[in-house]
Each structure stands twice: as C-alpha cells, then as structure tokens.
Amino acid sequence: MSLNKEEVLTMDGIRRILLVLSFILAWPLASLANGDEDVRAAIEAVNAEFSAAFNRGDTAAVAALYTEDGMLLPPGEAVVSGRSGIAAYWKAGADMGLSNLQLRATEVESHGPMAFESGEASFDVKASDGNKTTAKVKYLVVWKNVDGAWKLHRDMWNDPAKQ
C-alpha cells in the first residue's frame, strides 16, 4: 500500500498533534506531583509551628494557624468555631496537663487552594495519680490556602486508643 503526499502530511500532522497533546496532558500531572510535595512541606512546617506553640503554652499562636472561620471537631464534644473558640479549647487542654505534642503527617494531598492531611499525633497527659502517660490519636485536617499561607480549616481527631 502506498500513500500519497497529502496522506503522509496528514499522518505526520496527526503524530505531531498527538505528541503535543501528550505533553499538554502530562504537564499538569507533573506539576501536581511537585505541587503536592511543596504543599506537604508547607503543611509540615505549620505542624512544627503548631507543636512548638502548643508545647510552650501559646494557644493564641496555635489559633492563629487556623482560618478565621476554622473549626475543631473533637470526639464526643460540640464543634468549636472561630479562632477565639479554638484558642480557648487548646488552652483548656494545656491547663489539663496536655504537653509534648508531636504531629506526624502520613498523607497530604492538595487540590488547588484546598488540601487534606491525615496523620498521627502523640501527647503527654496527666493521669489521675499525677503521673504522665503518652496518648496517641489519628487525625484528619482540611487545609485552606489563605493569601499564600496554608491554614488549618477543619480539624478532627479520634479518642486516644485504649492502652
């Protein structure tokens, strides 16, 4: 079978179009992968800031890491809304003896100005006898990018596992 000049040009044109389309389609996927890494690094930095602020008792600094309309969804409790409510909630936790908070992201995925993170946290808590014990929880956070900064938007976790 022989092809005429127009058919060859058409096939070459189709190959070129397919090549260009493959680059166009692959480009966002590559940038998404890099974007997730950048978002993860930013979220891990905020988590380090969160832990440091909480561990030094600066619950106002912790609350500032949330969006203005941020929410806590603690297990077995009412929803806590807004930065002042969030600061009061974390202050009550610190006053009860929660300390040595450590956060570890296990998964971060971003979608434009929103991201989610799942992870594990550990913290020390005073037992009724005055001794400290370490508790562990799993958590899920919805993050929102506000003016170029990643902020916690919705924050929920489970009860500590029975030891």
Score class of each variant (00 low, 15 high):
residue 6 E to R: 14
residue 7 E to P: 00
residue 8 V to S: 01
residue 8 V to G: 02
residue 9 L to Y: 12
residue 15 R to W: 13
residue 15 R to M: 12
residue 17 I to R: 14
residue 19 L to Q: 10
residue 19 L to R: 12
residue 20 V to F: 13
residue 20 V to I: 15
residue 20 V to M: 13
residue 20 V to S: 12
residue 21 L to R: 11
residue 21 L to W: 11
residue 24 I to Q: 10
residue 25 L to C: 14
residue 26 A to G: 09
residue 26 A to V: 13
residue 27 W to D: 02
residue 29 L to V: 15
residue 29 L to E: 09
residue 31 S to W: 09
residue 33 A to R: 14
residue 35 G to I: 04
residue 36 D to T: 06
residue 39 V to A: 08
residue 42 A to C: 00
residue 42 A to L: 02
residue 42 A to K: 01
residue 43 I to F: 04
residue 45 A to Y: 02
residue 45 A to D: 07
residue 47 N to E: 07
residue 49 E to N: 06
residue 50 F to P: 01
residue 50 F to M: 05
residue 52 A to Y: 03
residue 53 A to E: 04
residue 54 F to R: 01
residue 54 F to I: 00
residue 55 N to C: 03
residue 56 R to D: 10
residue 56 R to Q: 12
residue 62 V to Q: 07
residue 63 A to E: 03
residue 64 A to Q: 11
residue 66 Y to A: 07
residue 66 Y to G: 05
residue 67 T to V: 02
residue 68 E to R: 08
residue 68 E to F: 03
residue 69 D to K: 09
residue 69 D to L: 02
residue 70 G to D: 05
residue 72 L to G: 00
residue 74 P to V: 03
residue 74 P to W: 00
residue 78 A to E: 14
residue 81 S to G: 00
residue 81 S to C: 01
residue 82 G to T: 03
residue 88 A to I: 04
residue 89 Y to V: 01
residue 90 W to C: 01
residue 91 K to V: 06
residue 94 A to R: 15
residue 95 D to L: 09
residue 98 L to S: 04
residue 99 S to E: 13
residue 99 S to L: 07
residue 99 S to A: 15
residue 101 L to S: 00
residue 101 L to E: 03
residue 103 L to H: 01
residue 104 R to I: 02
residue 109 E to M: 08
residue 110 S to Q: 15
residue 111 H to E: 11
residue 114 M to D: 02
residue 118 S to Y: 08
residue 119 G to Q: 00
residue 123 F to S: 04
residue 123 F to N: 01
residue 125 V to Y: 06
residue 130 G to K: 12
residue 132 K to W: 09
residue 133 T to D: 08
residue 134 T to K: 12
residue 136 K to M: 08
residue 137 V to Q: 07
residue 138 K to M: 08
residue 138 K to P: 00
residue 141 V to C: 07
residue 141 V to M: 05
residue 142 V to R: 09
residue 143 W to K: 05
residue 143 W to R: 05
residue 148 G to W: 06
residue 150 W to M: 09
residue 151 K to M: 14
